[in-house]
Nucleic acid binder design. Sequence first.
DNA 1: GAGAGTATGTTCGTTAGCACACATAAAGCG
DNA 2: CGCTTTATGTGTGCTAACGAACATACTCTC
Lengths: 271, 271
Amino acid sequence: MITHMSAQQNPNHNHLLDALPRSIFERISPHLELISMPLGTVLYESGSQLQHVYFPTAAIVSLQYVMENGASAEIAGVGNEGILGVPIFMGGNNMPNRATVQTAGSIYRLKARQMMEEFNRAGGRRSGALQNLMLRYTQALLTQMSQTAACNRHHSVEQQLCRWLLSTLDRLPSNEMSMTQELIASMLGVRREGITETAGNLQRAGLIRYRRGHITVLDRPQLEACACECYGVVKKEFNRLLSHGTNKTNFPLHHRIQPSLPHQEFRANHP
Amino acid sequence: MITHMSAQQNPNHNHLLDALPRSIFERISPHLELISMPLGTVLYESGSQLQHVYFPTAAIVSLQYVMENGASAEIAGVGNEGILGVPIFMGGNNMPNRATVQTAGSIYRLKARQMMEEFNRAGGRRSGALQNLMLRYTQALLTQMSQTAACNRHHSVEQQLCRWLLSTLDRLPSNEMSMTQELIASMLGVRREGITETAGNLQRAGLIRYRRGHITVLDRPQLEACACECYGVVKKEFNRLLSHGTNKTNFPLHHRIQPSLPHQEFRANHP
DNA sequence: GAGAGTATGTTCGTTAGCACACATAAAGCG
DNA sequence: CGCTTTATGTGTGCTAACGAACATACTCTC
């Protein structure tokens, strides 16, 4: 169990938990278990019965879809800004996704029963604060997924790599991440060689530096300029939907320069 | 307003509305407005304030993301199995998507206020039936979006075209749809020429037949064989999450035989 | 500090899908 | 009915990303 601390320095915190009203937090905190999650842990598999929701603190978890032929693609990432196990309170219990730990760290775990009890605790005609927060997070997740869909359709590997690095960076305490190119490739659903080449370009341009299994972001603004719009869109939605009360979920969006090459249009839909 | 009819023959029905308990349905039905939606109507734009939720009956609406450069991609489709305006009850009010009518037809409209009133109407510790249903639908939507993301990453235009035809077919009363290749291309976010070529192949193989603006599905099982797994995964999730009580949302995967209904012609050019 | 294990670099041929530029033909409309 | 609009058909490069098969080099462990 943890106390409701304001300490942003505390590494063991999750923005959703932090955003809960004190009264609610105090009710559930005795049931929170802090668990250490090594890289590669599978929190749940496609179709498995979910028993818990998880609130990552330092850990980052990747939601991926694994295809019949074994290929995979990341659908969304979840770090200290979010929660895993959304289908528990949405009513479907599970989803055809796998949740894999992409960055080791600790996670708070809460039993499905306790979660549901609080989720359904309503004050008369109005829904409770936890329900409210969870639904808003779920909407942000919807945006993240839909943006991933559009991004996978239209953006280059380079743009996507930049986007991915930035969103991972936002969930980390420093500007260095422990991450192999192979792992990134499997997240983005592209070839490892493609990442090697692209990362090489970024390094030569001075945006990042890497050595065997570690990547350091050197020039964040430039990285944002190279990323596709998707990064900013998702970030803005998370801020809009989840910054309230404590400002902990409110990340500033760095200056986004837009050199974007004038693409020709795809013939928009119904003019 | 409509009455709570069991008539599956009635063209003006929406599976979510049909699945509501009679008592709830009777409360909201006086507020339902049936509106005719021509092709190309934009129900809402990215970032606009949503005022209503919409329950399609014969109409099919496409949720798309429109990129900065004008390119677009369909994120999810919504027909008589669903609802539009999910962000209203999720708490975010809007989303960075556009909702465009892809197949003309009628839609029930309900004011946001009425929707919220019923959504938050809870019986003590338990959430109401409407909330329950809406959250389950939203989870199905999550699955649809995540599947679109994975599909955009890994599957060929042919597989995607088959998937798209099938899921559109599921929402139509007959096996013919009024649809130009240009429109399909913009939905899938690919070039029109790519659709022309692929559709030509499918026609030559006898799976479909088409003429200027109309496509008829001739061999559904074959089409399913050519589609990627995504079609089945999404369909199964919708069935799992939304077939309850009345069996109206429960489509069998194969052989969906339906008496041809007279469906209105509409102008192929956009308003 | 040497070797094993694994991460990264590089190459070459292949392909799906793109961009552009048209030709043709079917509806719709006056 | 002929004319215009719009949907579809085709062709010719072109490029990003793929697949496979390697060569190199870092690090961790023993």
